[in-house]
């Protein structure tokens, strides 16, 4: 009698997870936050002392915060801020990370060893610690947070890019390209990168969710510079101090962060699955 083996490799063969759900969530988040200026909301920075800690009402659907500012307005405007910082941060992680990783993977030898030793040293520190060290060096502010988040994410992205290059570098079609005298730059651009793009996209999605999380964490800790400029992370901290009296302040930014990160991760999964499906 034969006992069926557990389906160990099933995940690679099952239907790829859909793009539709995460793309929908992300578009909704982006559209709503971008629409903030058009919605005729109260100014997110204007404190109205008399109206502080008001529960949700028709006038303030999400209530007001400890300084009497409209929480809905701050959540939407804060989304612009948080997403902008996260995109900048992810960009700072991904672009140089990609260049370094591809250089290391393609050239191998000393370049590879040197670059990867450097990346490994950075990887030895927890992500957030690296971000905190960066802030300590360059001082607080929105762009400091973006830079801190980017530098913290860079080594991981370089590692992934290098690994992906190594996977296809020794494939016969690359050897063939070498043999017929295709210049290295063209091999990289037209033969290697297109074949690893799913891995790169997928990890870019992961990098974005890290950037949102780390950026929000640094803002939560008060490194955002001007505290009046709304930001989901900073709002979480403001809301936390009065959570028992006014839970409506921390909930919207908390839910928004969770949803956005969930969507970014699902997007990464979907890309990963298309790669598995194609191979």
């Amino acid at each position: 009698m034969r006992i069926p083996l557990p389906d160990l490799i099933g995940s690679a063969q099952r239907q790829p997870r859909p793009f539709a759900v995460p793309v929908m969530i992300l578009s909704i988040v982006v559209v709503i936050t971008l629409a903030a200026p058009l919605l005729n909301l109260p100014d997110p920075r204007t404190a109205v002392a008399e109206a502080h800690l008001r529960p949700p009402s028709l006038e303030h659907p999400f209530g007001t915060d400890a300084l009497g500012r409209d929480v809905l307005s701050r959540t939407l405007w804060g989304g612009q801020q948080t997403l902008l910082v996260a995109l900048l941060g992810a960009g700072i992680a991904i672009l140089p990370g990609l260049v370094l990783g591809v250089m290391a993977g393609y050239n191998q030898g000393w370049t590879d060893r040197l670059l990867m030793a450097g990346m490994d040293i950075l990887l030895a520190f927890p992500n957030l610690l690296l971000g905190l060290a960066t802030i300590a060096l360059i001082g607080p502010g929105r762009f400091s947070i973006a830079l801190a988040v980017g530098l913290a994410g860079l080594p991981a992205y370089a590692r992934v890019a290098r690994a992906a290059v190594l996977m296809v570098r020794s494939a016969p079609y690359i050897d063939a390209a070498h043999a017929i005298g295709v210049p290295p730059g063209q091999i990289l651009l037209f033969h290697i990168l297109p074949n690893i793009r799913e891995s790169l996209f997928s990890f870019a999605g992961v990098s974005l969710s890290w950037a949102i999380l780390n950026g929000a964490a640094l803002a939560f800790l008060g490194f955002g510079g001007d505290p009046a400029i709304p930001d989901w992370g900073a709002m979480l901290n403001e809301g936390r101090a009065v959570f028992r009296l006014a839970p409506w302040i921390a909930l919207p930014p908390g839910i928004a962060i969770t949803l956005t990160i969930f969507a970014a991760n699902r997007l990464a999964d979907a890309w990963q699955d298309t790669a598995g499906h194609r191979i």
Binding site: R45, T46, A47, A136, P140, D226, A228
Partner: peptide, 20 residues
Amino acid sequence: QLIQSQWRQVGIDVEIRQVA
């Protein structure tokens, strides 16, 4: 932040720099 809002009423903008 409250002062920032109050002063905007008389036409003064304030940039707050929070340090660690």
